[in-house]
Design a protein around this nucleic acid. Structure first.
Lengths: 212, 212, 212, 212
DNA sequence: CATGAATGAGCATTCATTCAT
DNA sequence: TATGAATGAATGCTCATTCAT
């Protein structure tokens, strides 16, 4: 039995409906307005609970924010980018690239990155954990896959983690930054396909094992 | 009662010494603490002027912030990454890549990206202009250089802007995000060299024109 | 819907075990932290009941506090400082003085005085009743005893109530105020003896009947 | 030049008119309602300034309260109970006793004792300093005077400090406690005279040197 | 033009109280 | 009857902004 709030152990557990309701409202407000821009008043309104109730479930604004980022991280981590190590690189990279960009360029995806990045200086732990769970985690998954393809002699890569990062970054080219800086709306599937395909081409040109 | 001194132009010029003094102080505070974290009090202290004086030169906090981002954009734009279109790609790309990463991963450089990104949802114009002047501008410069090298038959590229973006993104791989999420300090020159060299290799593997 | 359980008498009796349980917890919290410093939450915890139950037995915080002060008064009043009107003054005064100081300088005794005094301006009735039941009551007991000794020709006193007050106040000299202002801890039995003995000496020097 | 507030050094010094204005308003509210009962809003209203201004002159509510108690202590300490060591005891004691009771039973005087006593448990330093500057200080003055009269062979006292405390406490008999518990209004001069005269009589009966 | 004292709306947080279960 | 989740008014405090000097 995990007692998570200090005084009044709030209705049931970490998984109470109210708790979810609060986190849902808070996520929207935090992601839209940033940590400082979001007021507990507005969060309460968005969540459809009273201000007091917020504090029954979360000790303070920081803790509420951290809980949301943590949740976001877990959700993200669960999106298993099902890498099949026996599948060929071109197919896998394209599929992964599309899925990845679709996630981070969805309203909430981008906002989470932006929101956490914004607060990282003042809440380094939050930044660190988010980076590790969301960004580095994905890179590690991809790196592992690449390692498998190296073993399978399809690819020739020295530093698989660096290569994974390169691929992920290339997939974002011309898509993520305009989106996060509010220059363009979320990219269409076609735009994503174009960029991811190009990234895949470049990647394979450099890293495909030269067959004899 | 005739109001003459309303718009941005206040006492004297846009270029008065006081104005610069204020902007210098404000830049430091904004970049360190973010828009919301920066208080006008602290800005006044950092700038060495009184709080009232701030409002003589800038109508409000937003305008002061916008002026600083604008200035930052211009400064950045002036950093002509002197591309010599006659120089070969490998040399040019490596030189550019290193200079670029050193800039965006310098404490203040990174903070500007982070700070503007953080506020982009609430101040879309600021985000847009920053993106255009700083990020897209650099990509266009690189794209133009790449175009020249295509013309010179050294490179074979369909979409030079996309290619430019790919290169710039690859240069950031494993460097910029850990830095901006406070996971790692600013990268050393050696780390930068390693990543940029690898990006260059990948890039050229894909885009070097096949000599007959 | 007939509301039956509104006034002070709730579940069962004024003397129900729950009621006592609540008052015991509340007394500790109120005396430690003062009226404003005590929160109903903490009182509920100290009493081992839920917050809601507090309101079943007491209409509100004020009423709970009043009930406790009343109880305290009654308890205090019951501490019959068994004056034997046939006993000689010196013995009786010393015994009474020691007992009295030990009571008001015990952590809880002093806290009650302090706590009630603190709130007296905002809850004059509470102050009045406490003064009457606790302080004046004791003075009257002592005054009555002194009256008996006057009748017995041992003492010569015009205003026995004033004399009683004088003795009681003298007993507190250098003991009660440092204690209540947190300058010194509760006095030891030796310190009490010294001060009470001195008070008795002064008192008798002034009020002992001059024997023919 | 004493800089007393941290950021904006408030208008001039510790003695600025505004500061006094705030303290005057705050004193009334604190003494009437106690520390917890007084809200900064009400204090601002009573002082005729805005809430923000309160915080320009005092870091927080505690500091404002402490400043007032300190001021009260100083004021009290300055009330030199001009003891002339050559004057006879009866005259001096009566004069002192009346002056003393008039002070501590004046609306504000009594409230200060009550207010400080009430908070002493949570702000021990405040209690200690008040006790030392106000209560013990006066006792020391009287004790010194008594010492002089002992030297002059008018009085015979072992422990002058204890004797001083006894006299001061006796003067309060039937006056201070009913007043502070809101049972009676501040005593009249006649009531004070009666009690002080009686205290003096008792005191001298015990402590007058026996002339041969 | 420059100042900095003053403002008051806004913030995060607490807590006495209510009420469905 | 007893609970404890939920409430929302009130609190201490901050800070962008104004304005008399």
């Amino acid at each position: 039995m995990v007692s998570q709030t200090h005084l009044t152990v709030a209705s049931g557990d970490e998984d109470s409906a109210k708790r979810h309701q609060i986190m849902d409202g808070a996520r929207r407000v935090f992601m839209d307005l940033g940590f400082d821009g979001a007021s507990m008043n507005e969060i309460a309104r968005a969540a459809g609970v009273s201000k007091g109730t917020l504090y029954v479930y979360f000790n303070d604004k920081n803790r509420l924010f951290e809980a949301i980022v943590e949740q976001e991280s877990l959700d993200h981590g669960k999106k298993a980018f099902n890498f099949d190590p026996t599948l060929d690189a071109e197919t896998s990279l394209k599929a992964f690239g599309r899925a990845y960009i679709e996630i981070i360029c969805r309203p909430d995806g981008g906002s989470a990155v932006r929101t956490v990045m914004a607060i990282a200086e003042r809440m380094p732990d939050v930044g660190r954990r988010f980076y590790d769970h969301v960004i580095a985690h994905t890179m590690r998954l991809l790196a592992d896959y690449l390692g498998a393809r190296v073993k399978a002699k399809e690819l020739a890569i020295d530093d698989c983690y660096l290569a994974a990062a390169q691929f992920i970054m290339m997939c974002q080219a011309t898509l993520f930054q305009p989106y996060v800086f509010q220059v363009k709306p979320a990219p269409t599937k076609e735009q994503i396909a174009t960029v991811v395909d190009s990234a895949t081409r470049v990647f394979l040109a450099a890293y495909r094992a030269r067959q004899k």
